[in-house]
Write a protein that binds this DNA or RNA. Structure first.
Length: 257
DNA sequence: ATGTCGGAATTATTCCGA
């Protein structure tokens, strides 16, 4: 089974590109972030034509998450408790015996912006909620755009950005709450020393200059990690495909036995 | 030039978020 997470930066603008990727990579279970559309506008017919069912927690213009799957999934929860007014950012489904949660974590903007303490509070709510509804001994995946670089290896320039947004101790402590509970960063577990990024700014040729960040993760409980046979960041799909524009994020994938 | 996208508000241009 192939799972993936991908911030697609707008499904209206990205549908053909996402279809291209689904056909090429044939994933079974995918968390999408930043669909930027209400549930009613979701192109279910296009996904069904590609062999996928979708469940959606959408929002007009901004945010919005979805799970697309080859097999039926059961919705467990839409929205993070107590944090609903910070946007549609959380969707929990059950796929067979696997709990699968996809999140679009708040960006925070800058450490002096009002959104920064709200980002930290959102993370506290996420850690509290996942710990209350999941069992660390059972297979679960928490995936999405986390908007935090976990370590200096996960940013193109730690020295220039240390202490700035995505690079603060307070943010890294929040991620550590999730890993302390029982989640492991799948890509990092399989590639402990590789500098690899999942996001590059559209501006200034950042992709070609290798100026990126690794902020998109598949986090797995131990019993889910046991099933993982490979993990990769699909950086080829950060490039234009057949003239179609890419998201600023690459998909992150893993294969499970 | 930080100098590009996606989306909305409002009509081809400007603002916002990332």
């Amino acid at each position: 089974m192939r799972i993936a997470t991908w911030n697609i930066n707008g499904l209206n603008a990205r549908l053909a590109f996402v279809e291209h990727w689904l056909a090429a990579r044939q994933p079974d279970l995918v968390g999408l972030q930043e669909i930027k559309m209400v549930d009613e506008k979701f192109p279910h017919l296009a996904f069904e034509a590609a062999g996928y069912k979708a469940v959606v927690h959408g929002q007009k213009s901004w945010n919005g998450v979805a799970v697309v799957s080859r097999h039926e999934v059961e919705v467990v929860r839409r929205g993070l408790p107590g944090q609903e007014d910070f946007g549609a950012r959380f969707l929990h489904v059950r796929a067979g015996d696997l709990d699968f949660i996809t999140v679009y974590c708040p960006n925070g903007k800058t450490v002096t912006h009002d959104d920064y303490p709200r980002k930290l509070a959102w993370y506290d709510a996420l850690a509290e909620h996942t710990a209350s509804v999941l069992d660390p001994t059972r297979p679960a995946i928490l995936c999405g755009d986390f908007n935090i670089c976990p370590t200096p290896l996960d940013t193109w320039d730690e020295s220039a950005h240390s202490g700035q947004i995505f690079h603060t101790d307070d943010e890294r402590t929040r991620l550590a709450r999730l890993t302390d509970w029982g989640f492991t960063d799948v890509f990092r577990a399989l590639h402990p020393d590789e500098q690899a990024f999942s996001w590059w700014d559209y501006r200034g040729g950042a992709f070609h200059k290798k100026q990126g960040l690794r902020i998109d993760f598949l986090l797995a409980t131990a019993t889910a990690l046991d099933r993982v046979t490979s993990a990769e960041i699909d950086r080829d799909y950060r490039k234009k495909k057949d003239g179609l524009a890419a998201s600023d994020h690459a998909p992150v994938m893993a294969d499970l036995r």
